[in-house]
Structures are given as structure tokens and as C-alpha cells.
């Protein structure tokens, strides 16, 4: 078995939340992804045992959703929005600038596993277009220059934890709405930081 006992305990805790085991499949896939940076076949086998469905059924579900990755992601997953509000606010140039800096095409990861780049559909930050997410932490009102700086900063600082408010303050611009009080929680890999699945962390800002 590929999972440590601790992780299996966590998984069982999550399964407990639902009337039927299979409902926990989504959260368990996030656990798998936090462990490896993608959904490995080993994890699929593990999960199929935990929720009582076949491996290919797990695979079928995992591959349906774009946030479950089939290949290992870098430490920072850069998701640049290209949907309509961002598109008409020149997200192209942000995309180009990120691509230039990282040298990556869509869905690629660099050899050092620092960045994974992807063009994504609407991330609900249309008022702050063009917008980007780093490990699902939203940064709004970017410009090509700011996005470049952000990538540089990430590459140099290598923060353990990505926090939306920190990035926004450093590199962001116009926002969809007032974010209000500063939030120091964030995520540390290509999974959303979320308490229920134990992927949310706090940072001293």
C-alpha cells in the first residue's frame, strides 16, 4: 500500500462525513494530489480500495475534473484566466509574459518542478481582470509586468505557502471587490488550501 497510515486515517475521517463512501472520492483525490503533486496510479489503487470502486472508476472521475492532474505539477501552479472578461482585458499579454518567463507551453511543467503553467477558464475574478491563480490563490488586476515580477519573486523566494493577500498586495491591481481584512491562509501545492482536506496552512505575514 502506498499511503502512510496517517493519510489513510485522514481519508477515513473524510469518508465519515458522507452518507456514502463514494462521495469522499473528490476530497481523497485532493489528498492524493497533495501527496504527489498529481494523481498517481498508486493513489488511484489506494483510493479505489478505500471507497470500494474499481481503479478505472476512480480514474474516470479524476480525469473528468481539470484540477486533478495527470502529471506531476511544479511547486507553483500558475493558472492564467482566458475567459471573456479577462480576454477582453488583454489576458493574452499576461499569458505571453508568463510563458516567456517560464518558457512553458500550456499544461507544461519545468524540469526543476518549480512552475506548471496553464491557461484556464473563468476563475470568478472577472471584476479584477486579467486575473491569475497561483496554487488556486487568486491575484487580480495583473499586468504583463506585474505578472513577470510575480514569477520572478516566486522563483527566488520559493515561499512554502502561497497566500492570496500577500500576492495581491505585491503584484495585484484592480480587484473584483474589496477583500477587506487581510487573510494569512493559503495553500502549499497544486491543491486548494482547504481545512476539510487538511491542505490549508497559515503564514505569518
Amino acid at each position: 500500500m502506498s499511503w502512510e497510515k496517517e493519510l489513510i486515517d485522514k481519508a477515513n475521517e473524510i469518508i465519515e462525513l458522507y452518507p456514502e463512501k463514494r462521495s469522499a472520492l473528490g476530497p481523497l483525490l485532493y489528498l492524493a494530489q497533495e501527496k504527489d503533486g498529481y494523481i498517481s496510479n498508486d493513489s488511484i489503487i489506494q483510493i479505489s480500495n478505500l471507497v470500494g470502486i474499481t481503479e478505472v472508476q476512480v480514474k474516470s472521475v479524476a480525469s473528468f475534473y481539470s484540477m486533478y492532474k495527470e502529471e506531476q505539477t511544479g511547486k507553483y501552479l500558475l493558472s492564467v484566466c482566458k475567459s471573456i472578461s479577462c480576454e477582453i482585458n488583454d489576458s493574452r499579454s499576461v499569458i505571453d509574459s508568463v510563458k516567456n518567463f517560464t518558457g512553458l507551453e500550456n499544461y507544461e511543467t519545468d524540469n526543476d518542478k518549480v512552475f506548471t503553467f496553464e491557461e484556464v477558464e473563468c476563475i470568478g475574478a472577472c471584476g479584477g481582470a486579467p486575473a491569475v491563480q497561483v496554487n488556486y490563490e487568486t491575484v487580480e488586476g495583473l499586468t504583463p509586468e506585474k505578472s513577470l515580477q510575480m514569477c520572478e519573486w516566486l522563483k527566488e523566494e520559493r515561499p512554502e505557502l502561497v497566500v492570496a493577500d500577500e500576492l495581491q498586495e505585491k503584484f495585484g491591481g484592480v480587484k473584483s471587490f474589496d477583500w477587506a481584512i487581510k487573510d494569512n491562509t493559503g495553500s502549499s501545492y497544486s491543491v486548494p488550501g482547504f481545512q476539510n482536506i487538511g491542505t490549508a496552512k497559515e503564514k505569518n505575514l
Binding site: Y65, M67, S79, V120, I123, G124, Q133, Y136, E137, T138, A164, D183, T185, S187, P192, G193, F194, Q195, A200
Partner: peptide
């Protein structure tokens, strides 16, 4: 899933 912060 992309609404990590709102979900938190």
C-alpha cells in the same frame, strides 16, 4: 475548487 479562499 478554485474558490479556495471562499471555501476556507
Amino acid at each position: 475548487g478554485e474558490y479556495a479562499k471562499p471555501a476556507r
